[in-house]
Simulated scan of single mutants.
Amino acid sequence: MKLALVGDIGGTNARFALWRAERLESVQVLATADFATPELAIEHYLVGLDLGAEALGAVCLAVAGPVGGEHFRFTNNHWHIERSAFCRSLGLPAGGLLLVNDFTAMALGMTRLRPHERLQVCPGVAEPGCPAVVIGPGTGLGVGALLPLGGGRWQALPGEGGHVDLPIGNPREAALWQALFAQLGHVRAEDALSGNGLLQLYRAFCSVDGHDPVLASPAAVTAAALAGDTLASAVLEQFCVWLGRVAGNNVLTLGARGGVYIVGGVVPRFAGFFQTSGFCRGLADKGCMSGYLDGIPVWLVTAEYPGLEGAGVALQQALEERPELH
């Protein structure tokens, strides 16, 4: 078949690569603000490789949001896509564009990890044939599931698990929840377990413990914690424990004895702290069901382009189902 192109598009950056022989080639990151449309960004990417749009046979883009229907509007940048016009612009066959939810791509990307692209957080052995949880604090909190279908095929189940209620496990967490509620009203998991959530959590600590907040960004909270600041360290520790509680809830809901993958841009910034934190304790703190969590492995993903890899997996599976695109 002709070349295929995959993309992982966020609010600020669009990552593009060629997908050939089930591998990524020529990864490039472009600023979405530099291009009026995704078609123009793709054309620019191809020109840099001395390729024309006619070289493409299919395109798969991982995007934030629901992907049904003819039109897709990005929620975090100015781009939008009309499927038929997109295909005409790039000379693709009808139906040559596959859009997938960004966390669908992220989950599928877990099937492509190499050993050096993940760090063990909680020891254990994944049970074959069982679902896995993929959870990622970033700009928000992404949560999804990865289901093995057999024969080397996979299905990702995206959802809105970042918007579940933030769980309370002890009186201290109840006090912090009350402080968050005073700031926000309804308290979602994402309100504590995201980049901005880390700052919200710091302010909650200050409110409960009677401190004046002096740190003004998530990066400042993380830097202070890693430098040994007592308050910031307690905030980051609570972040890890709460992430464990939410991940553990998902394991129980899904029967996800296939393991837990921690993804996203936040946690790798303090990977060493995270590996020795109370995350595993929070994961397994499930009362009479705590034993169910024993032996479930957890990995922190450090791969550079898991979303692009997952877009490639999604495209590969679609191509196998649609031979007319070959």
Rank of each mutant, 00 (worst) to 15 (best):
D285M: 02
N250F: 15
F274A: 05
C280Q: 03
L243A: 11
S290G: 14
A271R: 05
G244D: 12
G312Y: 14
A303H: 02
D285S: 06
T253R: 14
V313C: 04
L293G: 01
Y261D: 11
R245Y: 07
A271K: 12
F270W: 14
R257F: 05
G278F: 04
A314Y: 08
V263D: 08
T302G: 02
G265S: 13
V246E: 10
K286M: 06
I296N: 02
W299Y: 15
K286Q: 15
G282I: 02
C280K: 01
A314K: 09
L252V: 10
A314V: 06
E309G: 06
S290Q: 06
D294L: 11
R281D: 05
G259L: 09
L283D: 05
I262R: 05
S277V: 04
T302N: 04
R269I: 01
N249L: 12
V260D: 07
E304A: 15
L254E: 14
R245W: 08
A314L: 11
L315P: 00
M289E: 14
A247P: 01
S277P: 08
Q275I: 01
L283Y: 01
V266E: 09
R281I: 06
A256M: 11
L243G: 07
S277N: 07
G310C: 01
W299R: 13
N250L: 12
N250Q: 15
V251T: 06
M289K: 07
G248K: 05
G248N: 04
F279V: 00
V266Q: 13
G312E: 13
D285V: 01
V246T: 08
V251A: 02
D294Y: 12
K286G: 00
C288K: 12
G244C: 08
R257T: 10
G307C: 12
G282R: 03
L319Q: 10
N249R: 13
C288T: 10
W242S: 15
T302Q: 09
W242I: 15
V263F: 03
L254A: 12
V251D: 07
Q317T: 04
G259K: 12
D294M: 09
R257A: 05
P297Q: 00
V301H: 09
I262D: 09
V246H: 07
A314C: 11
N250G: 10
G264K: 08
G255W: 08
L300A: 08
G295Y: 14
L283E: 08
V298M: 01
